[in-house]
Simulated assay, not measured.
Amino acid sequence: MTALKKVWRAHSGPYSMVLPCLVFLALFTIYPLGWAFKYIFYEYDGFSPATFVGFDNFVRLFTRDDLFWRSVWNTLIFAFGKLIVTLPVALILAVILNQKIFARNTLRAIFFMPTIISTAVISLVFYLMFNSYNGIVNKMLLQSGWVDQPVEWLGIDYAIITVILVAIWGAVGNYMVLFLAGLQGIPNDLYESASIDGANRWQQFYHITIPMLGPVMQVIVMLAIVNTLKGYESIMVLTAGGPANRTEVMYLYVYKLFFPISEGEAVVQQYGYGAAVGFVSALIVGVITGLYLYMTRKTAQTN
């Protein structure tokens, strides 16, 4: 106890500032995770007494729940479609807006603006824009003669493309700012030396910018992968996982098990099964992220 008192007296300031964060972390992260992990092995609907079922929830998940594995596949499609466009566009915008151009700060603010707007609001606006019958997108296409009849943007054929486009629009500005932070850490002397040696813009980008951004880029891509695999809010507003489960993603499926949100879903919450599905979903995200970090571990080394 004496040693603890000495440590507290010596570092009471930093510990006092960290303590509120630790309290909130325990209350709103660790405790809920512990609660959910407990009910992985129970059948529980929030009202009736919990019934211990052992590994039955996992047996159901791996043998009888085709919808979950459909949601995993949809999540991978959604993540690939979003990231393959978002990250290159964000990097290009960051490189452009890192130059001394007219209205640079204004353009940065414009591209970053979608990040600070509520996801629900953005999704509702796009829902109205992509409405099949009176949406502005179809009106413009019809008036321009590009299509002869309204396109079912949120229908079976195009729903996944639409939700990917909305996700790209909302995410580009966020990753652009992160890339900008990395670019501003690269010394200008390197570019000046390269210019003197006769290197053009493309050569400077390939031989200086990309290697020097390696450690930062690894972190940015990792955050993008995790956020995309976990994301479901915009899809919930736009399609609620439909039509015909074409846009059902992992964490939206978990959400529905805890809080049924549409007709055709179970009217009773499935907390126990939802906890098991959430655990497996988190494991999938962790494995994908771990594989990415393992395959890109060399980029974390400073060149």
Rank of each mutant, 00 (worst) to 15 (best):
M1A: 13
W8M: 15
A10T: 13
V18C: 06
L25T: 12
I30K: 00
Y31C: 10
L33W: 08
K38L: 10
I40K: 13
G46M: 10
F47M: 12
V53W: 09
F58Q: 14
V59W: 04
R60S: 10
D65L: 15
L67Y: 03
L67R: 01
I77A: 01
L83D: 06
T86F: 12
V89P: 11
L97G: 02
A103K: 00
R104D: 05
N105K: 00
N105S: 01
R108K: 03
R108N: 00
A109H: 05
F112C: 01
F112M: 01
I116G: 07
T119V: 14
T119M: 13
A120D: 11
A120C: 13
V121W: 04
V125Y: 10
Y127T: 09
L128T: 09
S132R: 10
N134L: 04
L142V: 15
L142Q: 15
Q143H: 14
W146R: 10
Q149M: 12
Y158W: 13
T162A: 00
T162E: 02
V163P: 03
A167L: 04
I168Q: 06
I168P: 05
W169E: 08
G170S: 08
Y175K: 05
M176E: 06
A181D: 14
A181S: 15
A181Y: 14
A181W: 15
Q184Y: 10
I186K: 02
P187C: 03
D189R: 05
L190M: 07
S193L: 15
Q203G: 14
Q204V: 09
H207L: 11
H207I: 12
P211H: 01
L213C: 05
L213V: 07
V216I: 11
V219D: 02
T228Y: 03
S234T: 12
I235F: 09
M236A: 15
V237Q: 05
L238A: 07
P260V: 13
I261T: 11
E263H: 12
G264D: 02
Y271C: 07
Y271Q: 14
Y273S: 08
V280K: 04
A282V: 02
L283Q: 01
I284E: 12
V285Y: 08
Y292M: 05
M295N: 02
